[in-house]
């Protein structure tokens, strides 16, 4: 039996709507469930006190600080390397063996389970470089983990900048570096920032790899060499050891809110920058 064009159009439309609706329902039910369970736990005390009694009571301030520091180290280290590699791949070299090797490595790195990064970070940073369980070890491990994401998204963003922009730059007497920094990168910025936001999300959410490299102490970190327990790790331990489901949900809700805030904040920054030009 053949289906006529109008019917197949209707069937396709229905299926696509169903798929989209399904995704929205699943996503929102997870987020709303966690927020409903978690938000009542969030109080001034929860935000400002360090955990007491293994996390049964007290707050999670040390974990919030630890999460922010590990993520900051990772992003500050990985972003320049990632964008630099992307610029090299798009502007400074022609497609060939070298670009294929770099791209292949980046793709392979992106596919490795995070626990493997954790193991590498543990052996290399924690033991071999004697950094111990620390924010620095955790942050550097995360930096390696998010590098492929930043490279790929930046590369895509730079590639979509019309070649004419570069030529306009050159024809107005720009050097190659000026053409890149003044015409190409500003146009590619929204895409690049998107990659960084995605990476921040991965850092904030990472559990296994940070537990192996940053440790799981509940104390407030005093330097980058202090160990710490990030929020995701704290949540994992609270839930897994059955210490306090209430505080686990509170931590999870705060994680979601944190990621939302980072997203919105960065987007506002980019929009302010971009709206000057469009």
């Amino acid at each position: 039996m053949r289906i006529d064009a109008q019917t197949s159009q209707k069937i396709a439309k229905t299926l696509i709507w169903t798929a989209a609706l399904f995704v929205i329902v699943v996503l929102f039910s997870i987020i709303i469930y966690i927020l409903i369970k978690g938000i009542p736990m969030i109080s001034w005390q929860f935000l400002t006190e360090i955990p007491r009694n293994m996390g049964r009571s007290g707050g999670i301030s040390s974990s919030i600080v630890g999460t922010l520091l590990v993520t900051a180290v990772a992003v500050i280290v990985a972003t320049p390397f990632g964008i630099g590699t992307a610029i090299y791949l798009t502007e400074y070299t022609r497609e060939g063996r070298v670009t294929r090797i770099i791209r292949f490595s980046a793709e392979s790195l992106a596919g490795i389970p995070s626990i493997v990064y954790g193991l590498f970070g543990f052996i290399f940073f924690v033991i071999y470089l004697k950094m111990g369980w620390s924010i620095l070890s955790g942050g550097l491990t995360m930096a390696i983990m998010i590098l492929p994401t930043i490279i790929r998204t930046s590369e895509e963003a730079i590639r979509t900048v019309p070649n004419l922009y570069r030529e306009v730059g050159f024809s107005l007497g720009a050097t190659k570096w000026q053409a890149i920094t003044k015409t190409v990168l500003p146009s590619a910025l929204p895409g690049i920032v998107n990659g960084v936001i995605l990476s921040i999300g991965r850092c904030v959410a990472e559990t296994a790899a940070v537990m192996l490299t940053a440790g799981s102490t509940l104390r407030m970190p005093i330097s980058l060499l202090s160990p710490t327990r990030t929020m995701a790790v704290h949540f994992y331990i609270l839930a897994r050891e059955g210490i306090s489901m209430e505080n686990a949900y509170g931590t999870a809700a705060l994680l979601i809110i944190l990621i939302l805030l980072i997203n919105v904040g960065f987007n506002m920054l980019v929009n302010r920058f971009v709206s000057k030009g469009r």
């Binding site: 922009y165 024809s171 107005l172 007497g173 720009a174 050097t175 971009v274 030009g277």
Partner: peptide
């Protein structure tokens, strides 16, 4: 070459304002 391109300016076939003011 950059000096040369300042001396010999070019206007392209498609108007290409850069994304700025």
């Amino acid at each position: 070459v950059t000096e040369l391109r300042r001396k010999v300016g070019m206007v392209f076939d498609v108007p290409t304002p850069l994304p700025m003011s």
